[in-house]
Write a protein that binds this DNA or RNA. Sequence first.
DNA 1: TCTAAGGCCGTAGACTGTCTACGGCTATGG
DNA 2: CCATAGCCGTAGACAGTCTACGGCCTTAGA
Lengths: 119, 119
Amino acid sequence: MVKHPDERRLELLQGTLDMLILRTLQWGSRHGHGIGQAIRAQSDDLLKVETGSLYPALHRLEKRGWLRSEWGVSEANQRAKYYRLTAAGKAQLSRERDRWSQLVDAIGRVLNPAPASKE
Amino acid sequence: MVKHPDERRLELLQGTLDMLILRTLQWGSRHGHGIGQAIRAQSDDLLKVETGSLYPALHRLEKRGWLRSEWGVSEANQRAKYYRLTAAGKAQLSRERDRWSQLVDAIGRVLNPAPASKE
DNA sequence: TCTAAGGCCGTAGACTGTCTACGGCTATGG
DNA sequence: CCATAGCCGTAGACAGTCTACGGCCTTAGA
């Protein structure tokens, strides 16, 4: 089950993080730390990605060929690993978006079934 | 990551099944098998609940006090365990619905950020 | 010059909830 | 009598998240 450690912060649903990372990189290349912050910022602070989820996710995405990485230097003059989307990553993102909207739709039908009668 | 074993059937996202079960029981008392079928039917066959997910979920929901069960006899004249929502279960359902819509909203903001500039 | 704070990467291990793959019992229909 | 279907259940694999560490480097300030 999902817990609410903070009452305000949402835990991620298993499988959604990859999609969020991929999506974030569509804005442009970013280093890991920055990806986490971008997700948090874009979601108005609702989604918080822990480093113990983020880095393993980045590694598996790269291993699967959705991402490619490169060491560089951050704006803060720190060593940082920059990630960018590969073509396969873009395709994957679109599959995941599809699946996500189907899922939201399907669950929506159970939560709020088609009208007809007004329960 | 989430796999697509069938290309058409969606696997559940961890944590959503409990909400679906709770919601289904709002329609009225049902036995386990029937709950699975109801979810599948309500989602137009998109969501399929495996028995290895369903029964453990039912057990933990009951253990947490969201559900109460009672043995009975099904329409097919079979021994069946009927579940119904407790008051605590209703409250829990409403929390989970809340969380779900917040999550969908938060993820939506990342997927389709507020306008202003045109991407 | 040293220290504290913050930026950045990373891993280990616990945990949770899903799935696949079994097994079992009872009623009904051919 | 046997096959099928309805119904309940468990064991074990698996995947992805979390908490809780640890480490290195840079910059700012005492």
